[in-house]
Design a protein around this nucleic acid. Sequence first.
DNA 1: TTGAAAGCGCTAACAC
DNA 2: GTGTTAGCGCTTTCAA
Lengths: 336, 336
Amino acid sequence: MVTLKQLAKELNVSISTVSKALNNSEEIGVETVKRVKELAALYNYKPNKVALSLKQNKTKTIGVIIPDVLNHFLAKVLFGIEREATEQGYNIITCISNESLEKEISSLQLLANGSVDGFILAVAKETQVKNETAHFVKTISQGLPIVMFDRVANDVLCDKVIVDDFEATYHATKKLIVENRRHIAFISNIDDLSVGKLREKGFLKAINEESKVKGSVLKINRLDDGQQKISEFLKGNRSIDGIISADNSSGIIAINTALSFGLKVPKDLSVIGYTSKSMSNHCIPRLTTIRQHAKDIGACAAQLLIKRLQNKSLNDVDYSTKIIKTSLIHGGSTLS
Amino acid sequence: MVTLKQLAKELNVSISTVSKALNNSEEIGVETVKRVKELAALYNYKPNKVALSLKQNKTKTIGVIIPDVLNHFLAKVLFGIEREATEQGYNIITCISNESLEKEISSLQLLANGSVDGFILAVAKETQVKNETAHFVKTISQGLPIVMFDRVANDVLCDKVIVDDFEATYHATKKLIVENRRHIAFISNIDDLSVGKLREKGFLKAINEESKVKGSVLKINRLDDGQQKISEFLKGNRSIDGIISADNSSGIIAINTALSFGLKVPKDLSVIGYTSKSMSNHCIPRLTTIRQHAKDIGACAAQLLIKRLQNKSLNDVDYSTKIIKTSLIHGGSTLS
DNA sequence: TTGAAAGCGCTAACAC
DNA sequence: GTGTTAGCGCTTTCAA
């Protein structure tokens, strides 16, 4: 990499002249500017990012801590973050907490040494289960803002971007009720996450509002064999005629299982899930889906963080929680 | 963030004394070391990463350029890279090329300003189609090593990690032939990728070795409706009794479609795909799958790069290409 | 045993 | 219009 020093030497001018010329300073003569720029272009000069970061005490880099990149939703949020960040001239350093509190803490600490200007993260499962928040508070108090998305720690004061999980699941359940379904099951393998709990609550509210509708809940451990669990469940509850799936796989498995029993979808059984677009065609008919607009969530989180980074005057009072509305996409596994 | 300067001031010693004490230099008296370390611990001192990078002219950061994080395979490789990198004390800056040559070039340029010590990447689709390699060569000549995985540019001299796509697809096809399948279809929506082509070649080789076996190929554009395409294809080719899917969805869709036609799997139709574990249960029976060990690919790529970064004596002669062997996982969609 | 000083690459206030 | 200088936070050589 060429440095200002080398350019200066070759041009027989001082380093600061070169610097100013490249930064279009008014002070420098047009002729000099031209000479400098030509040589810089020739050598493909680019200002050293590290030196700039040191000088300006900001890295233009965001630390992103994702619990699990194999989760399609989270990967899509990452995609949204990356795009927005890149557009605004920020890089992202990605850490994968693997749902572990310890890894989450170490990632936070590791990057809180000047590597990044702030964080975007979804809280790890273990962290939510143990309800641990000290590491977040500490990071923020060190001057590194955090934006949480999807899985948030309610007690921590910071910007947040969430989905209307409760509302969306409530309305999805209502929709099945309107379709005249009388025994609706809620299937979830994310019972331990805040979003999983919210979705269940939304479901239960809708069920409890209707005396003639029966509700059942099936919780699946992630280590369980989903196909087998769902198969047993449906066999043991023959009256089920509607299903809400809280995670991105159970709805698909439920449809395929029901079909293998000879049931007709959506005639005998109506299903709605939180599956992503690319998976929603893994059953015939396609799954009717609650879209979370993951990309928008990522973009929104990035915007919130960058805004805060660039506007020092924002103070603790200004923390905002953005709710990204879901949409219901009809896929054929429901009547309409 | 506390700096050496602040510690020095408070302790009434010089900056260099503090630095040496914290780095366990023999020069400094035990008593001083103790005092320094205590205060550093109290203030939770951490050496500023940016300053270290500037001083040592290396960032301990790897640039990772992924064509698409929503691709489960690529996401899993990213996971493998992240884990190995973290273990070895490296951070990763992730860029998503979105299969675009332009974004790939700009990501490379953007990080080649001192932000990273080297790159791990899979070549974008557009780059492969246009057979563009100049940007890779330029980056390497600037002293930033590249490790390519999965989708590689053969002409570029660098370390590579690939899968035995040709072999694996050849053997999978052979397996169907041994099962006495007589009309085997190859379905792919990744025809434009190097790996897609290799898989097709492996398929064709196996087919061409057997005169009594008929082969058909269905190429799906990513914008097409996969369900519809596959449905039409199977309807138009009733004799098909075996399917090899090159991508991670077509195999699942094919099974579900066949079942909806009333066919029995695997009795009437045998299917093998490249699907990932989490998706392989999106059909009943489960899809027999060629596992690519994506995590291992990522780990291997990271190891290769870090080894090169730490061993300046490695020269161009030493470039290696690692082949990660696939495994065939029986899932019920084949007879054995 | 400790400290002063140089330097990594850059910017900017201040001289000339 | 151009150059000198200091300083961002750190390591390291050399001097005391």
